[in-house]
Write a protein that binds this DNA or RNA. Structure first.
Lengths: 199, 199
DNA sequence: TTCAAAAACGAATACTATTCGGTATTGACA
DNA sequence: TGTCAATACCGAATAGTATTCGTTTTTGAA
């Protein structure tokens, strides 16, 4: 092997793509513009990534996990169980689903655009649901490991996450401004704070 | 006006599009194939519809409303309040979100593909949430009109609907086969059956 | 200094939704 | 019943996309 991929080029592609996706979403971000932003030819992008989808997830995956890890720390820091639960639910719905970068809105486009040949594996979703279980288990408390309600709650929360993000995308308004989202959050919080035996 | 649009052609377009969308989803359904199925030229499709998105909603809107109306009747028919609630939640998540026609999976693609110039109005989502409130109010019982918990529950249910449909699309598996979805449904049912004052 | 692997490039390729310019049809009116 | 203008309808653009291909250039090891 006599010529080696440039880490700088790879980073330039990711940086350019991140900017574009944040500004224009997934579908409207073109390989051409990513390449121009990175200072290379469009075809050269394919030396570093097999597809636009792969580029997107190379950006979204670490961002998403960082968000959850930061959330975990915030939850842990709360003084009361109620506050922990509130931070968990609101953090996921308000901060990650409705994020300022637009990465999650782009996720909806990316997921919708997936073709069978992309062989997408929902690792991120699994990871997130496991992380939610973990946060409740270790930082919120009140549940035993393996409690099936934990897995169900985590799934419900992530389904709600998807719906929230999708609506940001399609309605370009943070949905109901009338306090309905607050009430939805309350319902979700009630599920997890009520059901567990108290600490 | 001397020549009139043919109702037969309009129907042929819709029928062809419905078949295509059911088989290939929204993004992979092309105007060319819709036209071929309808026996007309692609450009002629635009005499009847302004865009592919409009064609899609001309199909999805009535289908979706029919599903909800049929669900409403089924719920009403149940003998006990618990069974009514169960049918409501499962009908939405199992029958409409994970439908056999693939129309709802296509909805996720259509929503994701929406551009600002499409000026999409989320009437359907609003309609569905109102209908859910109505069903609970009139067919399930236990709540007063205007109870804010109704609106919140309807919203939560539809967010879950979105998430479920999105996963069908992206994972092409009805998600968790391990009973987690059952537990999620139970959680949703508990919210609405527990909170209302009993009848 | 050489040289082959492979990065990088520009030009295809194969698609797409939608538009445009002309042609053919047809419903109202004479 | 014949005329004619509005417009359905058609085929050929247009503009835009992700990705691939053939070639040129670079570069790291020998």
């Amino acid at each position: 092997m006599v010529r080696v991929k440039s880490e700088a080029v790879r980073e330039a592609i990711l940086a350019s793509a991140a900017t574009e996706i944040s500004a224009n979403g997934y579908l409207d971000t073109t390989i051409g513009r990513i390449a121009k932003g990175a200072g290379i030819a469009p075809s050269n992008v394919y030396v570093y990534f097999v597809s636009k989808l792969e580029i997107y997830f190379a950006i979204y995956d670490p961002w998403f996990k960082d968000q959850f890890l930061a959330l975990e720390r915030r939850v842990k820091r709360q003084p009361t169980r109620d506050k922990k639960i509130r931070h968990l639910v609101q953090g996921i719905l308000r901060d990650i689903a409705i994020d300022q970068t637009g990465y999650t809105a782009a996720l909806m486009e990316a997921l919708a655009a997936i073709k069978p040949k992309d062989k997408y594996r929902p690792d991120l979703l699994t990871w997130a649901e496991n992380k939610i279980e973990q946060i409740i288990l270790k930082s919120v408390g009140g549940y035993e490991a393996g409690d099936p309600r934990l897995k169900a709650f985590a799934h419900l929360l992530m389904l709600t996450f998807d719906g929230t993000a999708l609506r940001v995308k399609a309605l370009r308004a943070n949905a109901q401004e009338d306090g309905t989202m607050d009430a939805v959050e309350d319902m979700l919080m009630a599920i997890i704070s009520g059901s567990g035996h108290s600490v």
